[in-house]
Amino acid sequence: MALVTISGYPCSGKTSRAVQIKDAFEKRIGDESYNGPVTKVVLISDDTLGLSRDGYNDGRAEKPQRGALFTALQRNLTKSTIVIVDGLNYIKGFRYQMYCVAREANVRVATVFVAAPSEMCKEWHQTRPESARYTEATFDNLIQRYEEPSSMVRWDAPLFTVPWIEASAPVEEIWQAVTAGVLKPPNAGTSSAPKPPSDALQALETTTARIVSEIMASQGSGMLSGGTVSISSPRVTVHLPAQRTVTLSELQRLKRQFVSMHKKAITLGATESGDVDWSEQGIGTKFGHYLEERFEGN
Protein backbone atom coordinates (compact mmCIF):
# COMPACT_ATOMS: atom_id res chain seq x y z
CA MET A 1 0.00 0.00 0.00
CA ALA A 2 2.63 2.57 1.03
CA LEU A 3 6.07 3.41 2.35
CA VAL A 4 6.47 6.15 4.96
CA THR A 5 10.10 7.15 5.46
CA ILE A 6 10.98 8.88 8.73
CA SER A 7 14.11 11.06 8.60
CA GLY A 8 15.88 13.48 10.90
CA TYR A 9 18.88 14.10 13.11
CA PRO A 10 19.72 11.39 15.64
CA CYS A 11 17.69 11.86 18.84
CA SER A 12 15.37 14.37 17.15
CA GLY A 13 12.21 12.51 18.17
CA LYS A 14 11.82 10.34 15.08
CA THR A 15 10.66 7.26 16.96
CA SER A 16 8.01 9.23 18.86
CA ARG A 17 6.63 10.55 15.57
CA ALA A 18 6.77 7.09 13.97
CA VAL A 19 4.81 5.59 16.88
CA GLN A 20 2.27 8.45 16.72
CA ILE A 21 1.68 7.76 13.03
CA LYS A 22 1.52 3.98 13.49
CA ASP A 23 -0.95 4.22 16.38
CA ALA A 24 -3.18 6.66 14.48
CA PHE A 25 -3.17 4.48 11.36
CA GLU A 26 -3.95 1.32 13.32
CA LYS A 27 -6.80 3.07 15.11
CA ARG A 28 -8.21 4.11 11.74
CA ILE A 29 -8.06 0.68 10.10
CA GLY A 30 -9.40 -0.93 13.30
CA ASP A 31 -12.54 1.19 13.19
CA GLU A 32 -15.67 -0.79 12.30
CA SER A 33 -16.58 1.72 9.59
CA TYR A 34 -13.28 1.25 7.74
CA ASN A 35 -13.38 -1.09 4.74
CA GLY A 36 -10.31 0.03 2.80
CA PRO A 37 -7.42 -2.00 1.45
CA VAL A 38 -4.99 -1.36 4.33
CA THR A 39 -4.97 -4.28 6.76
CA LYS A 40 -1.67 -3.82 8.60
CA VAL A 41 0.86 -1.18 9.67
CA VAL A 42 4.47 -2.30 10.18
CA LEU A 43 7.12 -0.22 11.96
CA ILE A 44 10.74 -1.04 11.06
CA SER A 45 13.68 0.47 12.93
CA ASP A 46 17.13 -0.37 14.26
CA ASP A 47 15.50 -1.24 17.58
CA THR A 48 12.85 -3.58 16.12
CA LEU A 49 15.59 -5.34 14.17
CA GLY A 50 17.92 -5.54 17.19
CA LEU A 51 20.66 -3.46 15.53
CA SER A 52 23.28 -1.82 17.72
CA ARG A 53 24.13 1.86 17.43
CA ASP A 54 27.76 0.82 17.34
CA GLY A 55 27.11 -0.12 13.73
CA TYR A 56 27.28 3.58 12.83
CA ASN A 57 30.79 4.00 14.18
CA ASP A 58 32.38 3.33 10.79
CA GLY A 59 31.31 2.95 7.18
CA ARG A 60 32.04 -0.76 6.90
CA ALA A 61 29.79 -1.58 9.84
CA GLU A 62 27.08 0.86 8.75
CA LYS A 63 26.53 -0.78 5.38
CA PRO A 64 25.13 -4.03 6.90
CA GLN A 65 22.93 -1.89 9.17
CA ARG A 66 21.28 -0.25 6.17
CA GLY A 67 21.17 -3.61 4.39
CA ALA A 68 19.17 -5.17 7.22
CA LEU A 69 16.74 -2.24 7.21
CA PHE A 70 16.38 -2.45 3.43
CA THR A 71 15.77 -6.21 3.49
CA ALA A 72 13.07 -5.83 6.15
CA LEU A 73 11.40 -3.16 4.01
CA GLN A 74 11.36 -5.41 0.95
CA ARG A 75 9.95 -8.29 2.96
CA ASN A 76 7.06 -6.31 4.43
CA LEU A 77 6.06 -4.05 1.53
CA THR A 78 2.75 -5.30 0.11
CA LYS A 79 -0.41 -3.88 -1.42
CA SER A 80 -2.24 -4.15 1.93
CA THR A 81 0.51 -2.94 4.28
CA ILE A 82 1.78 0.50 5.25
CA VAL A 83 5.46 0.22 6.15
CA ILE A 84 6.95 2.94 8.35
CA VAL A 85 10.75 2.99 8.25
CA ASP A 86 11.99 4.72 11.40
CA GLY A 87 15.70 5.27 10.97
CA LEU A 88 18.28 7.97 10.45
CA ASN A 89 17.72 7.72 6.68
CA TYR A 90 20.15 10.61 6.43
CA ILE A 91 21.67 9.65 3.08
CA LYS A 92 19.60 10.80 0.11
CA GLY A 93 20.94 7.92 -1.96
CA PHE A 94 19.48 5.42 0.51
CA ARG A 95 16.14 7.23 0.53
CA TYR A 96 16.18 7.03 -3.27
CA GLN A 97 16.92 3.30 -3.09
CA MET A 98 13.88 2.76 -0.85
CA TYR A 99 11.80 4.93 -3.19
CA CYS A 100 12.77 2.69 -6.12
CA VAL A 101 11.66 -0.41 -4.21
CA ALA A 102 8.32 1.24 -3.51
CA ARG A 103 7.90 2.17 -7.19
CA GLU A 104 8.69 -1.39 -8.20
CA ALA A 105 6.10 -2.68 -5.71
CA ASN A 106 3.63 -0.13 -7.14
CA VAL A 107 2.85 1.49 -3.78
CA ARG A 108 2.63 5.11 -2.67
CA VAL A 109 5.35 6.93 -0.74
CA ALA A 110 5.68 9.77 1.76
CA THR A 111 8.56 11.25 3.75
CA VAL A 112 8.30 12.69 7.25
CA PHE A 113 11.14 15.03 8.22
CA VAL A 114 11.37 15.44 11.99
CA ALA A 115 13.00 18.86 12.39
CA ALA A 116 14.86 19.76 15.58
CA PRO A 117 17.93 21.93 16.27
CA SER A 118 21.16 19.95 16.44
CA GLU A 119 22.01 21.46 19.85
CA MET A 120 18.74 20.22 21.30
CA CYS A 121 19.24 16.77 19.76
CA LYS A 122 22.62 16.60 21.47
CA GLU A 123 21.06 17.49 24.83
CA TRP A 124 18.41 14.80 24.42
CA HIS A 125 21.11 12.34 23.41
CA GLN A 126 22.93 12.89 26.71
CA THR A 127 19.80 11.99 28.70
CA ARG A 128 19.55 8.54 27.13
CA PRO A 129 20.82 5.37 28.81
CA GLU A 130 24.37 4.61 27.78
CA SER A 131 23.25 1.51 25.86
CA ALA A 132 21.01 3.70 23.68
CA ARG A 133 23.64 6.32 22.86
CA TYR A 134 26.05 6.81 20.00
CA THR A 135 29.64 7.65 20.74
CA GLU A 136 30.20 11.40 20.81
CA ALA A 137 32.31 11.29 17.64
CA THR A 138 29.69 9.20 15.83
CA PHE A 139 26.87 11.50 16.90
CA ASP A 140 28.71 14.60 15.63
CA ASN A 141 29.59 12.82 12.40
CA LEU A 142 25.96 11.84 11.76
CA ILE A 143 24.85 15.45 12.27
CA GLN A 144 27.47 16.75 9.84
CA ARG A 145 26.68 14.17 7.17
CA TYR A 146 22.91 14.56 7.34
CA GLU A 147 21.29 15.31 3.95
CA GLU A 148 17.98 17.03 4.57
CA PRO A 149 14.96 15.84 2.56
CA SER A 150 13.60 18.16 -0.12
CA SER A 151 10.11 18.36 -1.58
CA MET A 152 11.73 19.29 -4.90
CA VAL A 153 13.02 15.75 -5.51
CA ARG A 154 10.66 12.93 -6.37
CA TRP A 155 12.01 10.40 -3.85
CA ASP A 156 11.29 12.71 -0.88
CA ALA A 157 7.89 13.89 -2.08
CA PRO A 158 5.33 14.31 -0.71
CA LEU A 159 7.33 15.70 2.20
CA PHE A 160 5.85 16.45 5.63
CA THR A 161 8.05 18.55 7.92
CA VAL A 162 7.22 18.14 11.61
CA PRO A 163 8.93 20.72 13.91
CA TRP A 164 9.97 19.44 17.32
CA ILE A 165 7.60 21.88 19.03
CA GLU A 166 4.48 20.36 17.39
CA ALA A 167 2.43 18.10 19.65
CA SER A 168 1.72 15.57 16.92
CA ALA A 169 2.46 14.75 13.31
CA PRO A 170 -0.05 15.72 10.56
CA VAL A 171 -1.54 12.24 10.57
CA GLU A 172 -4.59 13.06 8.44
CA GLU A 173 -2.52 14.59 5.64
CA ILE A 174 -0.08 11.69 5.69
CA TRP A 175 -2.95 9.19 5.59
CA GLN A 176 -4.45 10.89 2.54
CA ALA A 177 -1.08 10.89 0.79
CA VAL A 178 -0.43 7.17 1.32
CA THR A 179 -3.96 5.97 0.58
CA ALA A 180 -5.30 8.39 -2.02
CA GLY A 181 -2.29 10.29 -3.35
CA VAL A 182 -0.69 9.98 -6.75
CA LEU A 183 0.40 6.40 -7.44
CA LYS A 184 3.40 6.49 -9.75
CA PRO A 185 3.76 3.37 -11.89
CA PRO A 186 7.10 1.55 -12.15
CA ASN A 187 9.39 2.82 -14.88
CA ALA A 188 12.30 1.31 -16.76
CA GLY A 189 14.69 2.29 -13.99
CA THR A 190 12.76 0.52 -11.23
CA SER A 191 11.04 -2.39 -12.99
CA SER A 192 12.31 -5.92 -12.78
CA ALA A 193 12.67 -7.87 -15.98
CA PRO A 194 9.90 -10.48 -16.32
CA LYS A 195 11.11 -14.02 -15.77
CA PRO A 196 10.63 -16.60 -18.54
CA PRO A 197 9.00 -19.95 -17.70
CA SER A 198 11.24 -22.78 -16.52
CA ASP A 199 10.82 -24.70 -19.78
CA ALA A 200 11.64 -21.72 -22.01
CA LEU A 201 14.92 -23.15 -23.32
CA GLN A 202 13.29 -26.48 -24.16
CA ALA A 203 10.43 -24.70 -25.96
CA LEU A 204 12.97 -22.62 -27.87
CA GLU A 205 14.86 -25.72 -29.05
CA THR A 206 11.87 -27.91 -29.94
CA THR A 207 9.87 -25.18 -31.70
CA THR A 208 12.74 -24.02 -33.90
CA ALA A 209 13.74 -27.62 -34.70
CA ARG A 210 10.17 -28.41 -35.77
CA ILE A 211 10.07 -25.41 -38.10
CA VAL A 212 13.39 -26.40 -39.68
CA SER A 213 12.09 -29.95 -40.23
CA GLU A 214 8.86 -28.75 -41.84
CA ILE A 215 10.72 -26.39 -44.16
CA MET A 216 12.98 -29.22 -45.29
CA ALA A 217 10.00 -31.54 -45.72
CA SER A 218 8.19 -28.96 -47.87
CA GLN A 219 11.23 -28.50 -50.09
CA GLY A 220 11.66 -32.27 -50.37
CA SER A 221 8.10 -32.67 -51.58
CA GLY A 222 8.76 -30.71 -54.74
CA MET A 223 9.16 -27.04 -53.89
CA LEU A 224 12.74 -26.69 -55.17
CA SER A 225 12.84 -23.05 -56.25
CA GLY A 226 11.77 -21.04 -53.23
CA GLY A 227 8.31 -19.91 -52.24
CA THR A 228 6.10 -19.78 -49.16
CA VAL A 229 6.06 -22.52 -46.52
CA SER A 230 3.10 -22.77 -44.15
CA ILE A 231 3.92 -24.44 -40.84
CA SER A 232 0.99 -26.14 -39.13
CA SER A 233 2.18 -26.16 -35.52
CA PRO A 234 2.89 -23.46 -34.60
CA ARG A 235 0.94 -21.66 -37.32
CA VAL A 236 3.75 -19.77 -39.04
CA THR A 237 4.29 -18.70 -42.66
CA VAL A 238 7.88 -18.41 -43.86
CA HIS A 239 8.78 -16.80 -47.19
CA LEU A 240 11.86 -18.53 -48.60
CA PRO A 241 14.18 -16.88 -51.12
CA ALA A 242 13.07 -17.26 -54.75
CA GLN A 243 14.90 -19.33 -57.34
CA ARG A 244 17.01 -21.35 -54.94
CA THR A 245 16.79 -24.16 -52.40
CA VAL A 246 17.55 -23.47 -48.74
CA THR A 247 19.88 -26.18 -47.45
CA LEU A 248 19.64 -28.01 -44.14
CA SER A 249 23.06 -26.75 -43.04
CA GLU A 250 21.92 -23.16 -43.72
CA LEU A 251 18.75 -23.61 -41.67
CA GLN A 252 20.64 -25.32 -38.85
CA ARG A 253 23.14 -22.46 -38.73
CA LEU A 254 20.39 -19.85 -38.53
CA LYS A 255 18.60 -21.92 -35.89
CA ARG A 256 21.75 -22.06 -33.74
CA GLN A 257 22.22 -18.30 -34.07
CA PHE A 258 18.61 -17.64 -33.09
CA VAL A 259 18.72 -19.95 -30.07
CA SER A 260 22.08 -18.59 -28.93
CA MET A 261 20.84 -15.01 -29.20
CA HIS A 262 17.80 -15.82 -27.07
CA LYS A 263 19.66 -17.69 -24.35
CA LYS A 264 20.45 -14.26 -22.91
CA ALA A 265 16.72 -13.64 -22.66
CA ILE A 266 16.30 -16.90 -20.75
CA THR A 267 18.19 -15.36 -17.83
CA LEU A 268 17.28 -11.68 -18.25
CA GLY A 269 13.66 -12.13 -19.30
CA ALA A 270 13.87 -9.72 -22.25
CA THR A 271 15.89 -8.99 -25.35
CA GLU A 272 17.09 -5.61 -26.52
CA SER A 273 14.02 -5.29 -28.71
CA GLY A 274 11.50 -5.90 -25.93
CA ASP A 275 9.85 -8.65 -23.91
CA VAL A 276 9.74 -12.18 -25.30
CA ASP A 277 6.56 -14.19 -25.79
CA TRP A 278 7.72 -17.63 -24.61
CA SER A 279 4.69 -19.53 -25.96
CA GLU A 280 5.21 -21.95 -28.84
CA GLN A 281 3.35 -19.57 -31.14
CA GLY A 282 5.38 -16.59 -29.99
CA ILE A 283 8.71 -18.37 -30.50
CA GLY A 284 7.60 -19.71 -33.90
CA THR A 285 6.49 -16.31 -35.17
CA LYS A 286 9.73 -14.67 -34.02
CA PHE A 287 11.86 -17.42 -35.59
CA GLY A 288 9.95 -17.16 -38.87
CA HIS A 289 10.61 -13.41 -39.01
CA TYR A 290 14.25 -14.02 -38.14
CA LEU A 291 14.66 -16.47 -41.04
CA GLU A 292 13.01 -14.10 -43.52
CA GLU A 293 15.26 -11.21 -42.46
CA ARG A 294 18.36 -13.36 -43.01
CA PHE A 295 17.11 -14.67 -46.36
CA GLU A 296 16.46 -11.12 -47.61
CA GLY A 297 20.16 -10.40 -47.43
CA ASN A 298 21.06 -13.41 -49.53
Results as ranks from 00 to 15, higher is better:
Ala2Ile: 05
Ala2Cys: 07
Leu3Tyr: 02
Val4Gln: 02
Tyr9Phe: 14
Cys11Gln: 12
Ser12Thr: 01
Ser16Gln: 15
Asp23Phe: 00
Ala24Val: 00
Phe25Tyr: 03
Arg28Thr: 05
Ile29Arg: 03
Asp31Glu: 13
Tyr34Leu: 06
Asn35His: 15
Thr39Met: 08
Ser45Lys: 02
Asp46Glu: 12
Thr48Ser: 12
Leu49Glu: 04
Leu51Gly: 01
Arg53Cys: 11
Gly55Gln: 04
Ala61Phe: 09
Pro64Gln: 09
Gln65Arg: 05
Leu69Gly: 00
Ala72Ser: 07
Leu73Trp: 04
Gln74Asp: 14
Arg75Phe: 07
Ile84Phe: 00
Val85Thr: 05
Asp86Asn: 06
Gly87Cys: 10
Leu88Pro: 02
Asn89Tyr: 08
Phe94Ser: 08
Gln97His: 13
Met98Tyr: 10
Tyr99Glu: 09
Val101Phe: 04
Arg103His: 04
Arg103Glu: 05
Glu104Trp: 06
Ala105Gln: 11
Val112Tyr: 02
Val114Asp: 00
Glu119Thr: 15
Gln126Thr: 10
Glu130His: 12
Glu130Arg: 15
Ser131Ala: 15
Ala132Asn: 12
Tyr134Gly: 07
Glu136Phe: 07
Ala137Pro: 11
Ile143Ser: 10
Arg145Trp: 08
Ser151Val: 06
Asp156Arg: 02
Pro163Gln: 10
Trp164Thr: 05
Ile165Ala: 13
Ala167Gly: 07
Pro170Trp: 00
Pro170Ile: 07
Glu172Ile: 12
Glu172Lys: 13
Glu173Ser: 14
Trp175Ser: 00
Val178Lys: 03
Thr179Phe: 04
Ala180Asp: 14
Gly181Asp: 03
Pro186Thr: 02
Pro186Trp: 03
Asn187Leu: 10
Asn187Phe: 08
Gly189Asp: 15
Thr190Gln: 05
Ala193Trp: 07
Ala193Ser: 14
Pro194Lys: 10
Pro194Met: 09
Pro196Lys: 00
Leu201Glu: 13
Gln202Ser: 08
Thr207Gly: 01
Ile211Asp: 01
Gln219Leu: 06
Ser221Phe: 05
Leu224Glu: 15
Leu224Ala: 12
Gly226Thr: 05
Gly227His: 01
Gly227Glu: 03
Thr228His: 10
Arg235Pro: 06
Thr237Ile: 09
Val238Gln: 04
Ala242Phe: 09
Gln243Arg: 12
Arg244Thr: 13
Thr247Leu: 14
Leu254Val: 06
Lys255Gln: 15
Lys255Arg: 13
Lys264Ser: 11
Ile266Trp: 04
Thr267Tyr: 07
Ala270Ser: 08
Asp275Ser: 15
Asp275Thr: 11
Asp277Tyr: 07
Trp278His: 01
Glu280Ile: 09
Gly282Tyr: 01
Thr285Leu: 13
Phe287Leu: 01
Tyr290Lys: 01
Tyr290Asp: 05
Glu293Asn: 09
Glu293Thr: 12
Glu296Cys: 12
Glu296Arg: 04
Gly297His: 07
Asn298Trp: 14
